[in-house]
């Protein structure tokens, strides 16, 4: 059984975009141990993206490769959740400059890895054996990412007054973006119909329980949701993705015929 390519790209784009974001901390972390931890998280995500792009390229045939998919598609062709492309700071427009905020990074990694431990766990049973194998490997990594980000969420929430305020602001900023997890894109719909994908909606109670429990332990409040549901996974992104891709793709695109 083969998986719809758009579904693989959704999973791969999530991984590459968040991998790119986490790597931005390399050399700038709050403590050396966290530089190493975030570099490792990034490395896992880039590794997941490579496997998923390779699988997609194999199915596409022709001259498709992992790097063609990562480096030679434009923002509107990316299928990642909008949450993952946001810079490491509060709500500001794409060309605003701001310092990286560790609370934003931690909250985002927590919200996403809490989802992905559930997604990868279920995808281990995918009828696409290749995807199931990727899921089994990725589950171990996502569990570690969840462990790491949850620990820090609690530390920051139940730490000092300042850390509490910062992490609460990050939760308030990022939580609305998670609404995108629960809508069904055409790619997800067809993957579910083919028995290779999973119905993310069914994961919501477990995700909610995980998130609520962690927020409570961190003495944080979950904001009520109202407003716009982002649509990155169907290619309608924030202003931030094209900056991220502009930087990521610049060298590869300057030398389109080069091998590295």
């Amino acid at each position: 059984m083969s998986t719809p390519i758009d579904y693989l790209l959704h999973l791969a784009d999530n991984a590459v975009v968040l991998g790119q974001r986490n790597a931005e901390w390399c050399g700038h972390g709050p403590i050396l141990e966290e530089d190493l931890a975030l570099a490792n998280v990034s490395l896992d995500l880039i590794g997941q993206a490579r496997l998923l792009y390779q699988r997609a390229a194999e199915m596409m045939g022709g001259d498709a490769t992992e790097d063609k998919l990562a480096y030679f598609r434009d923002a509107h062709q990316f299928r990642n959740y909008t949450l993952l492309e946001l810079p490491h700071h509060g709500p500001l427009v794409g060309y605003a400059a701001a310092d990286r905020d560790y609370a934003t990074t931690i909250v985002r990694n927590f919200l996403y890895s809490a989802l992905m431990v559930l997604v990868w766990d279920k995808l281990q049973q995918s009828k696409d054996a290749g995807l199931a194998a990727i899921a089994a490997k990725s589950l171990k990594e996502a569990s570690y990412h969840l462990h790491h980000s949850r620990d820090w969420l609690v530390r920051l929430g139940d730490g000092t007054e300042e850390s509490h305020a910062r992490v609460q602001a990050a939760v308030n900023h990022l939580m609305p973006y998670t609404e995108e997890f629960w809508t069904t894109s055409p790619a997800e719909g067809s993957a579910v119909a083919a028995g290779v994908g999973i119905d993310v909606w069914a994961l919501r109670p477990d995700w909610d329980a995980m998130v609520n429990e962690a927020l409570e332990e961190a003495t944080l409040t979950r904001p009520n949701f109202h407003g716009y549901v982002t649509e990155g996974k169907i290619g309608l992104h924030s202003e931030h993705l094209s900056y991220l891709l502009g930087e990521m793709q610049t060298l590869a695109r300057a030398h389109p015929n080069a091998t590295w």
Binding site: G29, P30, I31, Y102, R155, S163
Partner: peptide, 16 residues
């Protein structure tokens, strides 16, 4: 800058 910007994170870890 990385060290100074990270002060609040290290403080939080110690306080926790």
């Amino acid at each position: 800058k990385a060290h100074n910007d990270g002060q609040w994170v290290r403080d939080a870890a110690l306080a926790y």
